[in-house]
Simulated assay, not measured.
Amino acid sequence: MESIAPLWLWVVFVVFVVAALFVDFVVLRKQGSHAVGVKEALNWSLIWVGLSFVFNALFWWAVKDSTGSTALANEKSLEFLTGYLIEKSLAVDNIFVFLVIFSYFAVPAEFQKRVLMIGILGAIVLRTVMILVGGWLISEFHWLLYVFGAFLVLTGVKMWWAAGKEASLADNPALRLLRRVLPVSKDFDGEKFFTVEHGKRIATPLFMVICLVGLTDVIFAVDSIPAIFAITQDTFIVLTSNVFAILGLRAMFFLLKAAADRFHLLNYGLALILVFIGSKMLLIDIFKIPVAVSLGVVFTILAITMLWSSRTSAKA
C-alpha cells in the first residue's frame, strides 16, 4: 500500500477529520433537534466542498514540495478531484435509499440530522478499514482489479434496470432480521435509541433506522470503493477523497431531499458512470484512460442527466 503523500500530510488529514467531526457534533448539540432547511443545507454543502478543495490544494503543494515535479502534483491532485467527484455522485444513490428509510419509519424531520451524523461517523470507520484492506489486496493480487471491474459493470447494468422503480423496505431481509433479533417499540421516544416499555428495555424505531443506514452504507461502499481504485491505487488519495465526500453527505441529503423530484433520472447517469469506471478497470493493462478524460466523462454524464431531469420534471 504505497502512497506519495508525506507522513505529515497523513497527520494533517487525521487531525482535520477529527476537528471537523468535533465541530459538527458541537454545533449539532447546541442547535438541538430541529428540521434542517435548504439554506442551512446549502451553506454546509458549500463549506464541505470548499474545505475539500483547500485540502486538495494542500495535497498538490505537498507532492510538488516532496518530489519537485509540478506535473506529478497536477496528476495526483486531479486523481483526488476525480475520486471525490465519483464518490459524491455515487453517494446520491445512498441518499435516495436514506429517503426511503426515513419515509418508511416516518422519522420526524428534527431527528434526521442526528441519525445522519452517527451514520457518517460509522461510515468513516468502516470505509477506512475496507479501503486499507482493499489497497493491500490489490497490491498483492493485481487480478482483483478485473474482478472489481466486472462487478462494477454488472452493478451499473443492474442499477440501470432498477432506476425509476419504486423502492420498498417491506420485504427487506435486513429489516426482517433486525426485527427478529430486536424487540422494537411502536413509537419514537425523542432521540433515544432505547426505551422502557412494560418494564422491559427495548429498541426504538430510531435505533432500527441507524442500523439500516449503517448497513446501507456498507453495501454501497462495496460499489464505490472499487470505483476509486480504478482511478488510482494510491491509498491516501482513495481514503481522503472518500472521507471528504462522506463528510458532506449530511448536507447533501437535505439538499437532495428538497429537490428529489427534479433529479428523478439521476440513477440512470450513476449506472452509466459505474459501467464506464468498471470498463476502465477491465482495460487497465491494455489501455489506461487518462484521469482527465475520466473526470470529463463523469462530469459530462452527471451534467447531462441533471439537465435532462430538470427539463422533464419541469414539463411534467
Rank of each mutant, 00 (worst) to 15 (best):
L154W: 10
T155F: 05
G156E: 10
M159P: 03
M159D: 11
W160P: 00
W161C: 01
W161A: 05
A162D: 15
G164Q: 08
G164S: 15
L169M: 14
D171A: 08
D171K: 13
P173I: 06
A174L: 15
L175G: 05
L175E: 12
R176Q: 15
R180V: 04
R180D: 15
V181Y: 15
P183Q: 07
S185N: 06
F188L: 04
D189A: 14
G190T: 12
G190P: 11
K192L: 12
F193I: 14
V196H: 03
E197A: 13
E197N: 05
E197S: 12
G199Y: 07
T204G: 07
P205A: 02
M208H: 09
M208L: 12
V209G: 04
I210W: 11
L212D: 06
V213F: 09
V213G: 00
G214F: 01
L215V: 12
T216C: 06
T216L: 08
T216D: 09
D217L: 09
D217Y: 12
F220R: 07
A221Q: 06
A221D: 09
V222T: 00
D223N: 07
S224M: 08
I225T: 05
I228G: 03
I231W: 04
Q233A: 14
Q233H: 12
F236C: 02
I237C: 07
V238I: 13
L239K: 05
N242Q: 06
V243P: 01
F244S: 09
A251P: 08
A251Y: 11
A251K: 11
L255Q: 03
L255R: 04
L256C: 02
L256R: 14
K257N: 15
